[in-house]
Design a binder for these strands. Structure first.
Lengths: 206, 206
DNA sequence: TCCTTTATAGCACGGTCATGCTATTTTTAT
DNA sequence: ATAAAAATAGCATGACCGTGCTATAAAGGA
């Protein structure tokens, strides 16, 4: 089997263990058991526990970024301009990609937040945590700049502040859904997101 | 020495260890060393590791709730009505109490998020995590209801949605400040909070 | 003073962990 | 067929952990 494929299978076992039992239970033994492998087999693909964690975090980061950029490319593609309604819907869908609206995405958010929390005290993870945070800030900034060019943003808005605000809202929804399961359903999250976006547009365009 | 006093001193050692090295390093041994005690002494006041964690989480929860209610009482006290400007400033200050604007509050947020994350997989902590979340939702709801009564809220606002949105914003700012230290300074956080509150009020009142 | 209670301290056991190292099996290339 | 390489499996060590249990010191009341 392709080594990279094997590494990804192990990483997915990491995700399952993290989601079910937490990062502190994600030992080489538990991951190996989850993947149906012996501990020695896992260590054949990863030099040690740290390397496995870094790889898993990179894998999750890549997965999230890929989904975001797919939407961003469609939205910002100048060769296939979208109608205003399509723009608005595409923006909602793209930002909704970051929300744990279904079980699969909820797992991803839980795993990602676990890694981001661990990165606070583990230097080898720090860069990857900040990378996604910076990417999200850049992405929201671009969306807001596009909205301003299209006249769909209140003229007195400070884009830098609004980008922070939108990021914080998305992160907050993710955090609450991840840490307080069952208290924030998908419909409510979407309603909050739509309310926020509606509040950003000028009253005349609503 | 008063036993309760001793327990609180140990809890503060827990906070320091959690903030500096993370919850997974918060063992009885490390906490005892941080508190300048022998491990047996700590165990004289706490039956075991779980009881220590629950106590520390309760202690932090109580501290946060106390600060919030102090501001809430002042704001909602009908015997000493505030001018609109005072109301607005009091609301900002109260909500800012939840933000990690200085080192002390940043430590509290880091510790609290660590516990909230751990509560996801540890049933004995779950109730305390949800308690503070529910309290924050109730508090923001009351604030928005008060603003609506005073005519300081856009009339088309859905208070339930707006309360969720405000909570998510506060949680998001806390999360980013805790997990990405140095990327979100106090001034920016306050600017985001003020922008959000300003966007909630009718255009005529701005 | 003596005795009981409380506080402080620490040992020892069993468990989990990461990891260095080796053995066995399977695959691949020649 | 055979040698080399890759993959799988597992043992042994040392470290850290929670906890049951005991020992020593301090404090307080008779």
């Amino acid at each position: 089997m392709d080594p990279e494929e094997r590494r990804r299978l192990v990483a997915e076992a990491v995700f399952r263990v993290v989601c079910r039992h937490g990062l502190e239970q994600t030992s080489l033994r538990n991951v190996a058991a989850e993947a149906g492998l012996a501990i020695g087999s896992v260590r054949h693909y990863f030099a040690g526990h740290t390397e496995l964690m870094v790889f898993a975090m990179r894998e999750m980061s890549a997965r999230l970024i890929a989904r975001l950029t797919a939407h961003a490319d469609r939205l910002l593609d100048p060769s296939a301009p979208l109608t205003p309604d399509e723009q608005r819907e595409t923006v909602v869908r793209m930002l909704a990609e970051m929300l744990p609206l279904d079980e699969e995405r909820r797992t991803e958010v839980v795993v990602w937040l676990s890694f981001a929390a661990a990165a606070r005290t583990r230097p080898e993870l720090r860069a990857h945590a900040d990378e996604l945070y910076d990417g999200l800030l850049v992405l929201t900034t671009r969306i807001l700049e596009g909205a301003r060019r299209a006249g769909r943003l209140r003229p007195d808005s400070d884009i830098a502040v609004e980008a922070r605000r939108l990021c914080a809202l998305l992160d907050g929804l993710s955090l609450e859904s991840a840490f307080h399961p069952g208290r924030l359903d998908a419909d409510t999250m979407l309603a909050v997101l739509r309310a926020h976006l509606a509040a950003l547009t000028p009253a005349a365009a609503s």
